[in-house]
Each structure stands twice: as C-alpha cells, then as structure tokens.
Simulated scan of single mutants.
Amino acid sequence: MAESLDRWMENARRRRWVVMGVSGCGKSEMGRRLADALGIAYAEGDDDHPPANVAKMAAGTPLTDIDRRDWLLLLQSRIAAAAARNEGLVLSCSSLKRRYRDLLRAGDPALVFVHLHGDRALIAQRMHQRPGHFMPPALLESQLRDLEPLQADEAGIVLDIADTPEQLIEQLMQHCRQQAD
C-alpha cells in the first residue's frame, strides 16, 4: 500500500499541471495549494502577461487571440522546459479555449488541466472582493462567453469552486491516485 502511494505521488510530482478557468475562479490560490501539496514549483501565468495586455484588461477590453499568442508561447516554453528536465510544474492560466490548451500542450503532450468552474454569481462575488486586481469584474461575461470546457480527449479534471480549497485538493489527490491505478 505504501509503495503504491509513493508511486502515484511520484507520478503526480513529475507532471505538468495547468489550473484553468475564468478570472476569479481561484486559479492562483488552487495552483499554489496544488504545488504545495505535491512539493513542486508553481508559476503564476498572469505574471508573464506583457504590460500592453495588462493595460488592455485593466481598461476593460478583452484580449484577442492575437494579444494572447506570445504570452501563451512563453507559457508553453516554461512547460516544455520543465518537461525536458522531467520536473513537475503547476501553472495557473485561464486556458479558456481549446486552441489555447492545444498550444500549451505542444510544450508537453502529457499536460494535465485542472478546470475550476462555478456559478457565475459566486465568481462575480469573488472578483468584487479583490480590489486592485487588473482584471475588472466587467470582463467576466466575455470570459464566460469564450470558455470552452475540457473535451473528453483532454487530460484533466473539472472541479466545482463551491467546494472548499481543502476539498478541491483532496479531489485532486484522489484523481492522481486513480490515474496511477
């Protein structure tokens, strides 16, 4: 039993993970928690946005696919570098569209997505509770419109943000155990 526990945990630690979802769903918090639970590196995808993208979002203008392209390629290179070193990584990134996830997956075909989803009202409430964040609540509708949920052929798990962070981490650990079996 201890050997199988070690096996699934080691497998989870050597994976690359993307915690995805619309703004305000808790990607950063859950990304940090997952990285801590696994003992691997965490990267905040928003930190790599160029200043022009941040300014555009702060002004209430949704990013276009063209705006996101270089940013996604930078994140893809982070993922690929971790994969080349056979190191685990947790990255938070909205990854709203399938083509964005495909671009990230080009850095590591075994990339696993953790899709945080939830009720629109709960997400809006959370967005209003984080003053000073560059992403205004007004952009939530455009993000929900752009969101393409994980498809059956994409490695990942969908979690409901109505659960506590502790429950979500336990669900993720259970997912890891099942993948190792």
Rank of each mutant, 00 (worst) to 15 (best):
R15H: 14
R15P: 02
R16W: 00
V18G: 08
M20G: 13
G21Y: 03
G24N: 06
G24R: 05
G24L: 04
C25K: 02
C25D: 01
G26W: 10
S28Y: 06
S28M: 09
E29I: 10
R32C: 05
R32V: 11
R33F: 01
L34A: 06
A35G: 05
G39C: 09
I40W: 02
I40Y: 01
Y42C: 08
A43D: 09
E44H: 14
E44Y: 12
D47P: 06
D47K: 12
D48A: 09
P50H: 15
P50T: 14
P50A: 15
A52D: 15
A52G: 10
A55T: 14
M57T: 14
A59C: 07
T61P: 01
P62L: 02
D65Y: 14
I66L: 08
D67H: 13
R68Y: 05
W71N: 06
L73R: 13
L74C: 11
L74H: 14
Q76S: 10
S77I: 02
A82M: 06
A82H: 12
N86M: 00
N86E: 10
E87N: 05
G88D: 09
L89I: 11
L89F: 01
L89K: 07
V90S: 05
L91T: 12
S92Q: 10
S92F: 04
C93W: 01
S94A: 14
S94F: 02
L96F: 01
K97A: 04
L104A: 01
R105P: 00
P109Y: 00
V112E: 03
V112C: 06
H115L: 03
R120P: 01
A121R: 11
A124Y: 15
Q125M: 08
R126I: 13
R126N: 10
R126L: 10
H128N: 14
Q129A: 14
R130C: 06
G132Q: 06
M135P: 07
M135Q: 07
M135W: 07
P137S: 10
A138I: 14
L140E: 06
S142F: 11
S142Y: 09
L144N: 08
L144T: 12
R145T: 14
E148D: 13
